[in-house]
Amino acid sequence: MNNHAEQTFPELHDGILNSLNNILQPIPYFKHGGNQALNNCQDEYDTFVMAKFTCDNPQCSKRGWRSGKVTILIRGYQDNGYHAVVFNQRCERCNQLGALELDQPSYIDRVTYRLKKWAGFNMGTRSLREKKETPPHKSHLCEGCSRGYCELYRGQL
C-alpha cells in the first residue's frame, strides 16, 4: 500500500501481455521515465478502475473505503508502448491521502482494452450489464480530478 498522489504498476505488465495473448506486434512495453520522457505520447485516455483505500491517520475514525471510480490515465507511445498512472483519493473525514490497494484485474482489463483499441481492433461497445453501480464520484477527494483528468471521462471505455 502506498500514500502517494499517483502510482504506476509496471509489475502488472506481464498480466497485460498475458491478457493480450500475443495479438499486438510489436510487443507492448511499459514506458518508464520522468515527465519529460512521458510527454511525447501519441494517445492519451483517462478512465476508471477499482481499488480499496485505508486511512493511515491514527486520529481519523475512518478505517477505509472502496471505490469503483479511481482515475487512471493511460498514455500510448510508438510501437505499442504505454504508461499508466493511477490517481489516489483522499479520506473524506481527515483529507489525508489514502493507502491505495489496486484491483489488479480491473487495471489489466482497462489497459489491455485501451491498447487493443489504439491498435485498431474493433472492440464494440460494452453493455450496461458489465458496468457496476457505484456511489457518486467525489471530485473534491480525487487526485485525478484535482489534476484535470476526470472531466475528460465521457462514460465510455
Score class of each variant (00 low, 15 high):
Asn3Asp: 10
Cys150Lys: 03
Asp14Arg: 07
Arg63Asp: 15
Lys62Leu: 10
His13Val: 01
Thr71Cys: 15
Gly81Arg: 03
Leu128Gly: 09
Arg147Asn: 09
Tyr153His: 14
Met1Gly: 14
Glu143Cys: 07
Tyr45Thr: 07
Lys69Gly: 08
Ser127Gly: 15
Glu143Thr: 06
Ala51Trp: 05
Tyr29Glu: 03
Leu141Lys: 07
Val86Ala: 04
Phe48His: 01
Cys145Gly: 01
Asp56Met: 07
Asp14Cys: 04
Gly15Ala: 08
Arg63Leu: 14
Glu101Pro: 06
Ala37Leu: 04
Glu151Trp: 07
His13Ile: 02
Thr71Leu: 05
Pro58Ser: 05
Gly120Met: 03
Phe48Lys: 01
Asn35Ala: 04
Asp109Val: 06
Leu38Pro: 08
Asn88Val: 02
Cys142Asp: 14
Thr47Glu: 12
Cys94Arg: 01
Asn95Trp: 05
Cys142Arg: 00
Arg114Trp: 12
Asn22Val: 01
Glu101Gly: 08
Arg147Pro: 04
Ala99Lys: 09
Phe48Arg: 07
Phe30Val: 02
Glu101Thr: 10
Leu157Asp: 15
Ile108Lys: 08
Gly98Arg: 13
Thr54Ala: 10
Ser127Glu: 13
Thr8Ser: 07
Cys41Thr: 04
Leu157Ala: 12
Cys94Ser: 12
Asn122Leu: 13
Leu24Glu: 08
Ile72Gln: 13
Val70Ala: 05
Cys55Met: 14
Val70Gln: 01
Gly98Val: 00
Arg126Gln: 15
Arg63Asn: 14
Cys145Ala: 15
Tyr107Gln: 10
Gln89His: 09
Ala119Pro: 00
Cys142Met: 08
